[in-house]
Nucleic acid binder design. Structure first.
Length: 432
DNA sequence: TCTGGGGTCCTAGGACCC
DNA sequence: TCTGGGGTCCTAGGACCC
């Protein structure tokens, strides 16, 4: 936790529905529901007009129709959402090099890496309002809600407080006063299962959570989760804002309106999903070793079967063959409502595996004269192993580099400590 | 005719290795 | 002649997020 309110969280309001209302004026002011429109669809986003009828995210579309029959039900135009998201993220990156998108409609921004005279509450408040104004401007009128606080956790909690189209700053020092009366369910990571376990232990509020010993929390919810809750109950959250994290898996799945029983049909569907996954891996310059088949049976029990290959692949044919083989071992009597296939264990550096250089020794390269490391976005750099690239973002002792020399553009993005001796600067910064 | 799709992270057990 | 112990990889499942 920092001693300044320098972490900003932006959440675009009812994002998918708002894009639809922006692009179709006839939908403005009316209830709009975006999500699966088939017999087994669920709501992804409901406009605020639809929320008044009790329509919520993750509700089945069937129930949403019952609650609000006159709403517009749309299946979603993801390319439009992605494009708008890109424009909004560009605004954020112009404000600070350290931006961490969480999804198409949410991001953290590190204000400590932004060009601000100071990090006083008044300063960051004005900055947040200006950011909201610019987001609205570039997005064609979409509103967003901002939270600003001394950590990711508090910034995210704060952005929930004044929705939609609002801004909340948590002054440093006041975090616990804000948190203590709140329910434990405001903590990201406390979902229905964890909330129920805590409830049975008599823990409803963060004030109550704060009274519980760490060992006891670990006993209740497991080691990692328990330790994390113990710290969050004290507003302790040192997680940095990390731009451009690398993908860990790529998958494709589908739920079908009627349960599948024909294995040949299932194999065909898996083959199509494998083509989708393979194409996305190839496009991203990625390949992975573990192929996972996912099957949801008629009664909603979900099975997964995986197989790890000796070397990574992005081949649709290989992915499909493994998935079909895994399917063959399952008892599917009764029918299948969902099929999916994914690839994980991603190596974004295909050459490493082709040439078997995975076991390179971890040796610190000591340069005779360490370069001056003041990194700024757009600057050219060289990494000893990864070759030339350019600085994508920097701040808080971290520099993020995009390597254009690697496979298909855009090249991989990696983050390094700013003092990593394997980074060299090849051009002077624009200004210093 | 309840319950999406794309992900991330964690846990637990067994295999295997030194 | 009983029973090590720790680390890592793999697999399956579950909780959670937007």
């Amino acid at each position: 936790m920092r001693d300044t309110a320098s972490v900003l969280h932006l959440d675009l309001d009812a994002f998918f529905a708002a894009v639809e209302q922006r692009d179709k004026p006839s939908l403005r002011g009316k209830p709009v529901v975006v999500g699966g429109t088939g017999g087994r669809g669920v709501v992804a986003t409901a406009s605020y007009e639809a929320r008044r009828y009790g329509v919520r995210s993750a509700m089945s579309t069937r129930e949403a129709r019952a609650r609000c029959p006159h709403a517009a039900f749309l299946s979603g135009r993801f390319s439009a959402y992605r494009e708008t998201s890109r424009e909004v993220m560009a605004v954020l990156r112009a404000a600070s090099p350290l931006v961490e998108p969480l999804s198409l409609d949410e991001a953290f921004v590190d204000l400590a890496a932004a060009d601000l005279p100071d990090l006083e509450v008044e300063t960051v408040t004005a900055f947040g309002e200006e950011l909201r104004r610019r987001v609205q401007e570039v997005s064609g009128g979409l509103t967003g809600t901002v939270g600003i606080a001394s950590s990711k956790f508090l910034a995210k909690v704060a952005s929930e407080l004044d929705k939609p189209d609002g801004l909340t700053v948590v002054p440093p020092g006041s975090e616990l006063d804000l948190l203590r009366p709140m329910k434990v369910t405001v903590i990201p990571g406390v979902g229905p299962a964890t909330a129920e376990r805590l409830r049975r232990a008599g823990i409803h509020t963060i004030a109550e959570l704060e009274q519980v010993a760490e060992d006891e929390l670990v006993r209740l919810v497991g080691r990692a989760h328990g330790q994390s809750l113990w710290h969050l109950a004290r507003a302790q959250d040192p997680r940095p804002v990390v731009p451009e994290r690398e993908a860990k898996s790529v998958s494709s799945e589908g739920t079908y309106d009627t349960d599948l029983t024909d294995r040949r049909l299932m194999e065909g569907l898996l083959t199509r999903q494998a083509r989708d996954v393979g194409a996305r891996l190839t496009r991203g310059g990625l390949s992975g070793r573990t192929v996972t088949l996912k099957v949801r049976l008629h009664d909603f029990t979900t099975l997964s079967r995986s197989s790890t290959l000796p070397s990574p692949t992005d081949s649709a044919a290989t992915i499909a063959r493994v998935a079909r083989t895994l399917l063959a071992d399952l008892d599917l009597s009764g029918g299948v409502r969902l099929l999916g296939v994914g690839v994980s264990g991603l190596a974004d550096w295909v050459q490493e595996d082709l040439f078997g250089t995975d076991d390179e020794p971890e040796v610190d390269v000591v340069l005779p004269e360490p370069p001056r490391r003041t990194w700024s976005p757009g600057m050219d750099v060289v990494h000893d192993e990864m070759g030339p690239g350019w600085v994508w973002g920097s701040g808080s002792g971290v520099v993020t580099v995009r390597f254009e020399s690697a496979s298909t553009p855009p090249g991989p993005v990696r983050s390094f400590r700013a003092d990593d001796p394997r980074l060299h600067r090849t051009a002077p910064p624009a200004e210093d």
